[in-house]
Design a binder for these strands. Structure first.
Length: 648
RNA sequence: GCUGAUGUGGCACAGGUGGUAGCGCAACGCCUUGGUAAGGCGUAGGUCACCGGUUCGAAUCCGGUCAUCAGCUCCA
């Protein structure tokens, strides 16, 4: 008999060589029906796994992350089976589960149209209804390759040949006529995938390399119950409503113009105001924390970028003014970063250890010539403005200053309400990067990464490691944020640079009179203002917290005779720094309230005969709450308190 | 950059398999001075993204360009 330690700590005795599936059935048929896979000694395994020794044993259902993955992985096999039935000449590539569903890459005669996806869905329904049992089997590497060649699946052969090098048996799954090279785990049968939907068909390079053939990737999602699928579809619809790219335009925060160009959004008055509010706040906050404000040029001769290394590493990404191949003429480039410009502040005169740490801050506009397919609303643009900073340090100040940068970033993100959704990524180099991206020696990289790792651990930062995500001059702590569709980008970055100080000949005179090389931290505090605005639009669905609302109050007089008092109210609010305006159109107040509500104006003040007589205003919030009549003192106290707390 | 889709007045959409376009909202004007999410009437607004080709004739067919969207690749 084997002893299984279950999740609740209890021990269950079972016979040797029993399958996990039988064990789960023994626990209960209800559990078996919802089981997707099991965790044996902490390792995710198939329900088909045969137990041979004492172990911990946990049943995973669709409610567990790994259970979901198993479920979606099986859904991807159903998709592939359906495609092979309908389009037998299609070759299979890979079909994994992802964060919110699954995909399968096909080398199909042509990309699938939405109508074809509908057809494929119908075929998938049949496969689910057939409730096909999935079987797993293994072959020796040679047998596996032979089988895949016989099946005429060249992509699978390629994958298998790589696995074969290890000499281990190759695992396959089979459901009826459909056989796929696959490590599993999988559900026991296709019948469990009750509710699914194919979402899109797009292009994707084989093995993620642009040099390879582009395949057709079909995305889908699936659930055990129809209601769950409906919920997911509903959730996606709601996400669309929050999409900054739609909402930001509707609310007149920004727009784009064909003849200006891609990735060059125009910030309209409301959007510009929100960014101004953020920017002033950040500049003041940084000043409080000992940053020195700089203002450096938006372009420079190629000479500067040649020193920094950007000319070699980043020329394609720069907007170059002039002919870089004509050495008889000056050639300029718009700046894609601020580093080498800000270093000139340090280099302005000889520096002493007494000057350090030198914290330089700048609201810096950058230009990056992104590829045409990369632009996205305000999140990925060609011109943007960041709260850029460089700290020039004695080596012994590195940890303390890094901590200060992290504290500032967290404070800022917390204040705008984004911190709770952020994740941290320790971005490291990849010595094997094929494009020769990184400068410096392995020793320098090891040193910088070791120091950074130590600092992060000391600070208790919960991070994941991103290999090959470093800057060409050093490792980074990237603070990541997901947009409303789950796509992740960097919002804040803090980087340790051990290379550029040397390139620029930066040094300081130490206590003992010797010259030493400073360390440099590159960092942002709020990152890119455009990107932040995008995330804030999505986070708050356009209903910005009061302190960030482009217009905070709309004053709504009921009739012309109330305009005088409305004007007085406006003057009093403006004197207190509240952004407001009067809607003096000859419209019904219901309409004015509707429009102010749709514009997400936080407060509406209606002014009629009663208010004029009592010197009050009637306060309504954009949520629809009627807050009753207030005199100006009470109103201002309420508004100013809310602004000061920066609360939602 | 790659694959696919899309582009009709400010916005959201009709229509159109070749004979120069409609609705609603918004805008503007007039009437209405109304108490918490759309008052009434009227007017104006589009070379159907742009450029070129085919055609007696193109918004519609073809080619190119630009832009937007999804995804891939990239992102100092």
């Amino acid at each position: 008999m084997l002893k299984l330690t279950l999740k609740d700590g209890s021990i269950r005795e079972v016979e040797e060589n029993i399958s996990a599936a039988e064990v789960v059935k023994g626990i209960g048929m209800g559990l078996y029906k919802s089981a997707c896979c099991v965790k044996i000694n902490g390792e995710v395994c198939d329900l088909r796994t045969v137990l041979t020794e004492d172990c911990t044993f946990e049943v995973l259902t669709f409610d567990d992350a790994d259970g979901k993955k198993t479920f979606w992985h099986t859904a991807s096999h159903i998709l592939a089976q359906a495609v092979k039935r309908l389009y037998p000449e299609t070759k299979l590539a890979i079909g994994p589960a992802i964060d919110n569903g699954f995909y399968y890459d096909f080398d199909a005669p042509h990309p699938f149209s939405p109508e074809e996806l509908t057809k494929i869905e119908a075929e998938m329904k049949k496969i689910v209804k057939e409730n096909q049992a999935l079987e797993s089997f293994t072959l020796s590497p040679d047998e596996a390759i032979a089988k895949l060649k016989e099946m005429d699946e060249p992509y699978k052969v390629e994958l298998c040949e790589e696995h074969a090098a290890k000499g281990e048996p190759i695992s396959f799954y089979k459901q009826e006529e459909f056989v796929d090279l696959c490590a599993g785990p999988h559900l026991m049968s296709t019948g469990a995938v009750k509710a699914f939907k194919l979402l899109s068909c797009t292009g994707a390079y084989w093995r993620g390399s642009e040099k390879n053939k582009m395949l057709s990737r079909v995305y889908g999602t699936a659930f055990p119950k129809a209601a769950q699928l409906d919920e997911e579809i509903q959730r996606r619809e709601e996400a669309k409503m929050r999409d900054h790219n739609k909402l930001g335009r509707e609310l007149e925060l920004f727009t784009t113009v064909d003849c200006i160009g891609q990735g060059l959004p125009v910030l309209l008055p409301k959007g510009a105001r929100v960014i101004q509010l953020l920017q002033r706040w950040i500049e003041d906050e940084e000043q409080k924390r000992g940053y020195l404000l700089t203002k450096t040029p938006l372009m420079a001769k190629s000479d500067l970028y040649k020193i920094s290394g950007h000319w070699d590493h980043y020329l394609d990404g720069m907007f170059v003014l002039g002919d870089p191949t004509d050495e008889t003429k000056e050639c300029f480039a718009l700046r894609p970063m601020t580093c080498p410009f800000q270093y000139q502040v340090f280099l302005n005169r000889q520096r002493s250890y007494r000057d350090l740490p030198m914290r330089l801050g700048e609201t810096s506009t950058l230009f990056r010539n992104e590829d045409s397919g990369e632009m996205h609303g305000l999140i990925r643009v060609r011109q943007f403005t960041i709260s850029e900073g460089h700290l020039i340090l004695r080596p012994e100040q590195l940890e303390e200053e890094f901590k200060g940068c992290l504290e500032l970033a967290k404070y800022v993100l917390d204040t705008v309400g984004m911190l709770e959704d952020c994740t941290f990524r320790f971005s490291q180099w990849d010595p094997a990067n094929p494009k020769n991206k990184y400068e410096g020696t392995a020793e320098q990289w090891e040193e910088a990464q070791t120091i950074m790792g130590k600092i992060l651990d000391n600070l208790g930062v919960d991070y994941e490691i991103g290999i090959d995500e470093a800057a060409f001059y050093g490792p980074k702590l990237d603070i990541q944020y997901k947009n409303v569709f789950g796509k992740e980008d960097t919002i804040v970055t803090i980087q340790i640079d051990m290379l550029l100080a040397e390139k620029f000949g930066m040094e300081y005179v130490d206590v003992d009179g010797s010259k030493r090389r400073p360390y440099i931290i590159h960092r942002t505090s709020l990152g890119c203002y455009e990107r932040t605005l995008a995330y804030l639009i999505e986070k708050y669905a356009g209903a910005f917290p009061l302190w960030l609302a482009p217009e905070q109050v709309k004053i709504i007089p009921i009739a012309d005779r109330h305009l005088d008092w409305a004007g007085e109210v406006q003057a009093k609010l403006e004197a207190a720094g509240i952004r407001c305006s009067i809607d003096d159109r000859a419209e019904k107040m219901g309409k004015k309230i509707r429009e102010a509500t749709l514009a997400k104006t936080p407060y509406m003040l209606t002014v009629g005969d009663q208010e004029v007589e009592n010197k009050t205003v009637s306060v309504r919030s954009r949520k629809g709450d009627n807050l009753g009549a207030m005199d100006m003192d009470a109103l201002l106290a309420k508004l100013l308190t809310e602004v000061a707390t920066k609360a939602r």
